[in-house]
Amino acid sequence: MDSTRTAIVTGGSRGIGRATALRLGRDGYAVVVGYAGNRALAEEVVAEVEAAGGHALAAGGDLADPAVAQHLFDVAEEAFGGADLLVHAAGQMVLAPVAELDLDDLDRTFQVNVRSTFALAQQGVRRLRSGGSMVLFSTSVVGLAFPTYGAYVASKGAVEALTPILAKELRGRDVTVNTVAPGPTATDLFLDGKTDEQVQQLAQQPPLQRLGQPEDIARVVAFLAGPEGHWVNGQTLRANGGLV
């Protein structure tokens, strides 16, 4: 299967990562579905991709361990001949006012959201094939500055700052690097701990008057990863329905 275009999708068992893995499978990619702990959910995604005629497999591991980044690329090469696309959708979010934030939670947030991005990017720089792409993830809250999001926004701001640097460091490789910054999106991560009233209030804020759906974000990733989006490079794209 050396000629197959292959995508590695972290956080591929749930939410935006799941929707992205399914979309890329429909687009003809072989998909490595990365997951942290729930293999059963990842295997459900694999089964759905394969039921639609595609190729996929699940590969697990805690991205706080940099060896997992290498493992995901090893799996892609062994199973599908190489990797063309890295989508780093896995993330950690802890909400607390800065004054009350447990610094151990801060460390864990930076391990998963920042350190893992560097570890995966190192593998991507070395191993993505020509014509490939990296799609990283931030959040529109970087600009919206909601209270209690300090740790999460600080970690995602680091990803945004890294994006154009990575793009420039890949000069001559024909590999693009972009970051998608979703607004409020109906995922388990977003909905957890929010009341129905809070969810409805957030849903009314964008001019389109709804929450984003994981499939909305998957379409953006597919565009950036495909030939139509290959001239977009080093950018952070805020996919949030106009929420500013």
Rank of each mutant, 00 (worst) to 15 (best):
A76I: 07
G60C: 05
G91M: 09
G150K: 02
A181N: 05
Y152E: 02
L85M: 04
Y29V: 15
I217E: 04
L72H: 09
A99D: 09
G25M: 14
V112A: 06
A167G: 03
A59L: 08
V180D: 01
G132H: 01
L211C: 02
T236R: 10
F118Q: 13
S140A: 13
A167K: 00
E160Y: 12
G37Q: 06
R5I: 02
D107M: 11
L144I: 12
L170Y: 07
G11H: 10
V135H: 04
A186S: 13
G234F: 00
A51S: 15
L101D: 06
R39T: 15
I165D: 11
A145P: 06
E50M: 15
L85A: 01
V68R: 00
V220Q: 09
E48C: 02
F110H: 14
D192Q: 12
D74C: 03
F223M: 05
E48I: 01
V32S: 06
L189G: 12
E228K: 09
P206N: 00
T163R: 06
Q122M: 04
V142D: 10
A58H: 03
V125H: 10
A145W: 08
S138C: 00
L237G: 06
K156A: 01
G242W: 03
N233F: 09
Q213T: 14
D192G: 06
G229I: 07
V31G: 09
Q213Y: 05
V244R: 14
P164L: 00
L166I: 10
V31F: 08
V177L: 07
G54L: 06
R210I: 02
A119L: 01
R23M: 12
P227R: 08
N240F: 04
Q111R: 15
G81H: 00
G15W: 09
T20E: 01
D65H: 04
L136S: 05
